[in-house]
Protein backbone atom coordinates (compact mmCIF):
# COMPACT_ATOMS: atom_id res chain seq x y z
CA UNK A 1 0.00 0.00 0.00
CA UNK A 2 1.39 3.46 -0.87
CA UNK A 3 2.56 5.54 2.10
CA UNK A 4 0.03 8.42 2.46
CA UNK A 5 2.66 10.59 4.15
CA UNK A 6 5.57 10.75 1.71
CA UNK A 7 6.68 13.20 -0.95
CA UNK A 8 8.73 10.62 -2.82
CA UNK A 9 7.71 8.87 -6.02
CA UNK A 10 7.17 5.15 -6.41
CA UNK A 11 9.05 2.85 -6.18
CA UNK A 12 9.06 3.40 -2.43
CA UNK A 13 12.20 2.74 -0.39
CA UNK A 14 10.95 -0.79 0.36
CA UNK A 15 10.14 -1.41 -3.30
CA UNK A 16 13.61 -0.25 -4.37
CA UNK A 17 15.21 -2.59 -1.86
CA UNK A 18 13.10 -5.46 -3.21
CA UNK A 19 14.27 -4.64 -6.76
CA UNK A 20 17.93 -4.86 -5.70
CA UNK A 21 17.32 -8.07 -3.75
CA UNK A 22 15.69 -9.66 -6.80
CA UNK A 23 18.63 -8.59 -8.96
CA UNK A 24 21.06 -10.28 -6.55
CA UNK A 25 18.96 -13.45 -6.34
CA UNK A 26 18.03 -13.79 -9.99
CA UNK A 27 21.05 -12.36 -11.84
CA UNK A 28 24.13 -12.24 -9.61
CA UNK A 29 23.82 -15.52 -7.70
CA UNK A 30 23.31 -17.81 -10.73
CA UNK A 31 26.15 -16.07 -12.64
CA UNK A 32 28.75 -16.34 -9.88
CA UNK A 33 30.25 -19.02 -7.66
CA UNK A 34 32.20 -19.50 -4.44
CA UNK A 35 32.80 -16.46 -2.32
CA UNK A 36 31.05 -13.96 -4.61
CA UNK A 37 27.89 -16.11 -4.88
CA UNK A 38 27.93 -16.66 -1.11
CA UNK A 39 28.23 -12.93 -0.42
CA UNK A 40 25.50 -12.19 -2.98
CA UNK A 41 23.20 -14.48 -1.00
CA UNK A 42 24.19 -12.78 2.24
CA UNK A 43 23.55 -9.38 0.62
CA UNK A 44 20.10 -10.53 -0.60
CA UNK A 45 19.27 -11.69 2.94
CA UNK A 46 20.40 -8.34 4.32
CA UNK A 47 18.05 -6.54 1.93
CA UNK A 48 15.26 -8.81 3.18
CA UNK A 49 15.97 -7.46 6.67
CA UNK A 50 15.77 -3.88 5.41
CA UNK A 51 12.43 -4.60 3.66
CA UNK A 52 10.90 -6.01 6.83
CA UNK A 53 12.24 -3.20 9.00
CA UNK A 54 10.79 -0.58 6.63
CA UNK A 55 7.40 -2.28 6.87
CA UNK A 56 7.29 -3.29 10.57
CA UNK A 57 9.68 -0.85 12.25
CA UNK A 58 7.30 1.96 13.26
CA UNK A 59 4.66 -0.32 14.80
CA UNK A 60 7.31 -2.37 16.59
CA UNK A 61 8.88 0.76 18.06
CA UNK A 62 5.56 1.98 19.48
CA UNK A 63 4.88 -1.44 21.02
CA UNK A 64 8.39 -1.73 22.48
CA UNK A 65 8.25 1.74 24.02
CA UNK A 66 4.89 0.92 25.63
CA UNK A 67 6.27 -2.34 27.10
CA UNK A 68 9.34 -0.63 28.55
CA UNK A 69 7.34 2.28 30.00
CA UNK A 70 5.01 -0.22 31.65
CA UNK A 71 7.88 -2.29 33.08
CA UNK A 72 10.05 0.59 34.28
CA UNK A 73 7.25 2.97 35.26
CA UNK A 74 8.42 6.09 33.45
CA UNK A 75 8.74 7.64 29.99
CA UNK A 76 11.88 7.71 27.85
CA UNK A 77 13.32 6.77 24.47
CA UNK A 78 13.61 3.07 23.64
CA UNK A 79 17.38 3.38 23.83
CA UNK A 80 17.45 5.08 27.24
CA UNK A 81 14.88 2.70 28.71
CA UNK A 82 16.72 -0.35 27.33
CA UNK A 83 20.03 0.88 28.75
CA UNK A 84 18.32 1.31 32.13
CA UNK A 85 16.81 -2.18 31.94
CA UNK A 86 20.12 -3.80 30.96
CA UNK A 87 21.96 -2.05 33.80
CA UNK A 88 19.36 -2.98 36.39
CA UNK A 89 19.42 -6.64 35.29
CA UNK A 90 23.21 -6.65 35.67
CA UNK A 91 22.87 -5.07 39.13
CA UNK A 92 20.59 -7.94 40.17
CA UNK A 93 17.47 -5.76 40.60
CA UNK A 94 15.31 -8.29 38.75
CA UNK A 95 16.68 -11.47 40.31
CA UNK A 96 13.51 -12.03 42.33
CA UNK A 97 11.20 -10.65 39.62
CA UNK A 98 12.17 -12.80 36.62
CA UNK A 99 8.52 -13.46 35.81
CA UNK A 100 8.00 -9.73 35.19
CA UNK A 101 11.10 -9.03 33.16
CA UNK A 102 11.33 -12.18 30.99
CA UNK A 103 8.13 -11.63 28.94
CA UNK A 104 9.17 -8.04 28.21
CA UNK A 105 12.68 -9.02 27.06
CA UNK A 106 11.30 -11.94 25.08
CA UNK A 107 8.79 -9.70 23.27
CA UNK A 108 11.61 -7.36 22.22
CA UNK A 109 13.74 -10.24 20.95
CA UNK A 110 10.73 -11.64 19.07
CA UNK A 111 10.24 -8.26 17.38
CA UNK A 112 13.93 -8.15 16.40
CA UNK A 113 13.66 -11.64 14.90
CA UNK A 114 10.50 -10.75 12.98
CA UNK A 115 12.77 -8.34 11.11
CA UNK A 116 16.16 -10.07 11.21
CA UNK A 117 15.07 -13.66 10.53
CA UNK A 118 11.37 -14.51 10.92
CA UNK A 119 12.06 -18.14 9.97
CA UNK A 120 13.95 -18.51 13.24
CA UNK A 121 10.78 -18.09 15.29
CA UNK A 122 8.93 -21.31 16.12
CA UNK A 123 5.83 -21.91 14.02
CA UNK A 124 2.45 -22.35 15.73
CA UNK A 125 2.79 -26.18 15.71
CA UNK A 126 6.31 -26.11 17.12
CA UNK A 127 5.30 -24.13 20.20
Amino acid sequence: MPDPDTLHDRPSAAELVIAVREYLEQDVMPATEGRIAFHARVAANVLGIVERELILGATQAAEERARLVELLGHEGTIRDLTIELAKSIRAGDWDSRQAEVLPCVRAAVRAKLEVANPNYLPTEEEK
Binding site: L85, R90, V101, V105, R106
Partner: peptide
Amino acid sequence: EPHPAFEL
Protein backbone atom coordinates in the same frame (compact mmCIF):
# COMPACT_ATOMS: atom_id res chain seq x y z
CA GLU B 1 24.53 -1.29 22.80
CA PRO B 2 22.21 -2.53 25.57
CA HIS B 3 21.19 -6.21 25.49
CA PRO B 4 18.79 -7.12 28.31
CA ALA B 5 18.64 -10.75 27.09
CA PHE B 6 22.46 -11.07 27.28
CA GLU B 7 22.38 -9.50 30.75
CA LEU B 8 19.83 -12.10 31.92
